[in-house]
Design a protein around this nucleic acid. Structure first.
Length: 829
RNA sequence: GCGAAAGUGGCGGAAUUGGCAGACGCGCUGGACUUAGAAUCCAGUUGGGUUAAACCAGUAGGGGUUCAAGUCCCCUCUUUCGCACCA
């Protein structure tokens, strides 16, 4: 008989709802708050395996913490703005709002059927005016703090999405969402000054438990390097061209200046010398190369001499200015002083275009000869041809030259980050409108707070133009300037949806607030999120953006701490047949049929048992059956022996005179409790915690006729079962509640508290010593705890199998490790 | 190319941080119960070896430290992930 999950899963879900078990109060007398958060889903349609896995982990932690007596908040909502909804609407000739609402309803039904303990009263959806209003409000506060600006520059443009992408959203030169090629387009964009926080974002000391991997990825992404900015002066125009270098020690070796075609000097030059069409063509060609190829090291270095020169401030050298395809506009100052003798890239370029090389660093044995070099010399060495710095060690010279440049106002020592400011403009409809009105007289004017939210108009026709559909809603676009009352035009760019998800965790603490994004007092009770759970793919996107937002919100007094997420768990992906489930591979598995067939608990147990949470889980039909089988065995214990357990179970562990067999069972019960607690608390390893319960179940099942036991033994037997029923709660809450009630308990499982092992019952009368001879296992002895070391040695030496290996040998040493082993070292006589 | 993590049965994965390798689950083999199947229960399941034991080998490969190594050190190989013209 299979257990009737279809009956009681619903039953317990109703009980939880009726008793408001998961509706968290902001404060509960005598209880500490604990905030468990799983990344909210994009409402793409139906729940997929990744969601099920993610939320099974979160729910296990949440319920474990409830058993521990915490006042737990575990909310859930929807990241419901975004391009997929708009694309879906275009394809199916519907409205993004309708499609999104429909999907949210479906997913909410599925999440409810899974029985996850979410506080639905606090739910939110980023596409609702109640939520996005505060996104606009925060945009304004950012603006007022000088953290928002508008700039025209070359940006990542995805033709597929018809919009701009932030640097974080370009992977290998492809759009992170659809994988299509990203090209550079010159546009005016809104930016958030995330770089103002670059230094602080590199401080990870407030994270209690973040995976080292994520921290490393963020460090690399932010990419701090110290170096020197040096001003080169253009010979005729006297324009300043700033370069950034980490090798000021090579400044005397500069033989040309390398600029990317996007560089402002080049842009200006092209305007003044329109006649030089070859230069213009070259620039155009490089700009249109796709980002991946242009950024790859294998790419052939190409360049074009502008015919212009600039002056190296340290020695007055005339230096040729080249446009090249290998310098990145995005890094440093976007200009490179090329030192071909000591930089491999410059070396290759100079060789190709017959530009002079100048040796300024000599190796230790002074054997470098410029004419014989086949690659750049990039190691440290001794300075030569460097004026007054000659004969100095290059590492020392770095600092000295940098200081000298500083003093003589030829430049300055600086820190540069790889991190760029966050471009948040999106040329799409289904997103949060940027609360700005453009006025011919007043320029860009912020919409007054009392006029927020700027409502996204509903009457748009998506997909009719290649432009942002908002542009076609004249009555929306045309408005009055809040400043002068004259005619104004609304900003039609919407915000990147990553803005919406950068502060949602805080909104959960006070999601119904109509006066503020959330009350700082309430937020303080919950933040930072104690445990955040989500995919590793957000390491350099969402998780950096949210950290930035949190620091900004701290600076305007909305939140107290420095970090939004104290602990982070990056769960693995759910794979099928060894590779990531995806639509394009056609290997996706829909969880619904399995939920229908085996119930929520079996799916959860499978997900948690298959591997540690941060590792990928390979989906397996058989694995679910195994989990289901396990839960059936637990259920059968309650079914068969419910009355006996009910009669004899004591909520404490009485110290009784019991049989040897029951001592062993009691040992098993208490070992399980200890292991369970350690596995979850210290390592979040649900797989081994579950394995421990399974092992205990095997021990319980081996007791054949519990009815025939004496009273004391029955008490131990009852405890062995009842404790197990409670310990499955975080993983299989429905079964747990059901079997708990089947043994006559009237309360809910989490109310029964955290079963705690009694260390006394983990002490056994006998211990097994392993006996080794020269490191090889030769036998075992069981001795009582009181046995002296001498006696143990004696017993070990007399073991039949040990004696055999001692023949004709001389005993050199005997090592006894308490409660573990005897190691006998011998050598031939 | 640089950096990080990892490599354990047929499979997913365990191993008090140096102390019985393979917990637990899947799968498989045999048996019980069934007219039969499903379900369930029992036994077995690293390889070699043996009627059974003993024993031998064994945690990617090689070397080392140690009474004792999956675990620590050195070298090699492989895989995964991240970064990758970052000046």
């Amino acid at each position: 008989m299979e257990y009737p999950f279809e009956v009681f899963e619903k039953k317990w879900q109703d009980v939880w709802k009726k008793e408001r078990v998961f509706n968290a109060e902001n404060q509960v007398e005598g209880k500490e708050n604990y905030f468990v958060l799983s990344m909210f889903p994009y409402p793409s349609g139906v729940l997929h395996m990744g969601h099920v896995s993610n939320y099974s982990i979160g729910d296990a932690i949440s319920r474990y913490k409830m058993m521990q007596g915490y006042n737990v908040l575990q909310p859930m909502g929807y990241d419901s703005f975004g391009m997929p909804a708009e694309n879906f609407a275009i394809q199916h000739n519907t409205h993004p709002r309708l499609a999104t609402e429909n999907n949210m309803a479906i997913m909410q039904g599925q999440l409810t059927a899974m029985g996850f303990g979410f506080d639905w009263q606090r739910t939110l959806a980023t596409s609702t005016p109640e939520y996005y209003r505060w996104g606009q409000w925060l945009f304004k506060r950012l603006y007022e703090k000088g953290l928002v600006y508008k700039k025209t520059s070359f940006v990542n443009w995805c033709d597929q999405c018809q919009t701009v992408l932030a640097n974080e959203q370009v992977e290998d030169g492809k759009c992170w969402r659809d994988g299509s090629t990203v090209r550079q387009k010159e546009m005016e964009q809104w930016y958030f000054k995330i770089t103002d926080y670059a230094e602080e974002l590199l401080d990870f000391s407030k994270m209690i438990d973040w995976p080292e991997r994520v921290i490393t990825m963020q460090k690399n992404w932010i990419g701090r390097s110290t170096g020197t900015e040096i001003d080169f002066i253009e010979e005729t125009t006297k324009d300043k061209i700033k370069v950034f270098t980490t090798r000021p020690d090579t400044i005397f070796g500069v033989t040309f200046m390398a600029l990317p075609p996007e560089h402002e000097y080049i842009r200006a030059l092209l305007k003044t010398e329109a006649a030089n069409s070859d230069l213009a063509d070259f620039c155009e060609k490089v700009i249109n190369e796709d980002k991946k190829e242009r950024g790859s090291a294998e790419q052939k270095k190409e360049g074009f001499f502008t015919g212009k020169y600039c002056i190296n401030p340290v020695n007055g050298d005339r230096v040729q200015i080249w446009v090249t395809n290998y310098v990145l506009m995005d890094y440093g100052t976007g200009a490179v002083m090329a030192v071909p003798a000591h930089d491999q890239r410059d070396f290759e370029f100079a060789k190709k275009y017959n530009i002079a090389l100048k040796l300024v660093i000599q190796n230790q044995d002074k054997s470098l000869v410029l004419e014989e070099m086949t690659e750049a010399y990039v190691e440290p060495g001794i300075l030569v041809n460097s004026d007054k710095f000659n004969d100095k060690d290059s590492n020392k010279a770095k600092e000295e030259i940098s200081a000298w440049i500083d003093e003589n106002k030829m430049g300055k020592t600086t820190i540069t980050y790889r991190l760029r400011d966050w471009g948040v403009s999106r040329q799409r409809y289904w997103g949060n409108p940027i609360p700005v009105i453009h006025c011919d007289k007043c320029g860009s004017v912020l919409v007054p707070d009392e006029d927020l939210p700027v409502l996204l108009p509903d009457n748009v026709q998506v997909g009719k133009t290649t432009q942002n559909p908002l542009l076609s809603v004249a009555e929306w676009v045309n408005t009055t300037c809040p400043n002068c009352g004259g005619p104004g035009r609304r900003e039609t760019d919407t915000m990147d949806t990553f803005v919406d998800s950068s502060w949602y965790y805080a909104r959960y603490t006070d999601s119904k607030n109509t006066e503020m994004p959330f009350s700082p007092e309430i937020a303080e009770k919950w933040l930072p999120v104690d445990q955040y759970i989500g995919g590793i793919e957000h390491a350099c996107m969402h998780l950096i953006y949210a950290r930035f937002f949190h620091k900004f919100m701290r600076d305007i007094g909305l939140v107290k701490g420095d970090e939004p997420f104290a602990r982070l768990l990056t769960q693995g992906m759910v794979c099928n047949l060894g590779s990531k489930m995806s639509k394009s591979k056609g290997n996706g598995v829909d969880p619904q049929p399995y939920i229908d067939r085996y119930g929520s608990d079996a799916i959860r147990v499978f997900m948690l048992f298959a591997s540690p949470p941060e590792k990928d889980v390979d989906w397996s039909d058989d694995g679910v059956v195994g989990a289901f089988r396990f839960l059936n065995r637990v259920y059968r214990q309650a079914e068969n022996y419910g009355d006996l357990i009910n009669e004899y179970y004591k909520p404490y562990s009485p110290d009784l005179d019991i049989s040897k067999e029951m001592k062993e069972l009691r040992f098993s019960t208490h070992t399980m409790m200890k292991k369970w607690h350690e596995d979850i608390e210290e390592k979040l390893q649900f797989n081994t915690a579950i394995a421990g319960i399974m092992e205990h179940l095997n021990n319980v099942s081996s007791i054949k006729d519990p009815e025939n036991l004496n009273t004391n033994d029955k008490i131990i037997y009852a405890e062995a079962n009842a404790v197990m029923f409670r310990l499955i709660y975080p993983f299989a809450p429905h079964v747990s509640e059901e079997v708990w009630s089947m043994i006559g308990q009237t309360g809910l499982v989490h109310e029964s508290g955290l079963p705690k092992h009694n260390p006394l019952y983990l002490v056994t009368d006998e211990v097994t010593y392993v006996v080794q001879v020269n490191g090889k296992l030769r036998g075992k002895i069981d001795v009582s705890l009181e046995t002296s070391e001498e006696e143990i040695k004696e017993l070990a030496l007399n073991l039949e199998n040990v004696v055999k290996f001692l023949e004709d040998k001389e005993i050199k040493k005997i090592i006894v490790v308490k409660k573990k082993l005897v190691s006998i070292v011998v050598k031939p006589k």
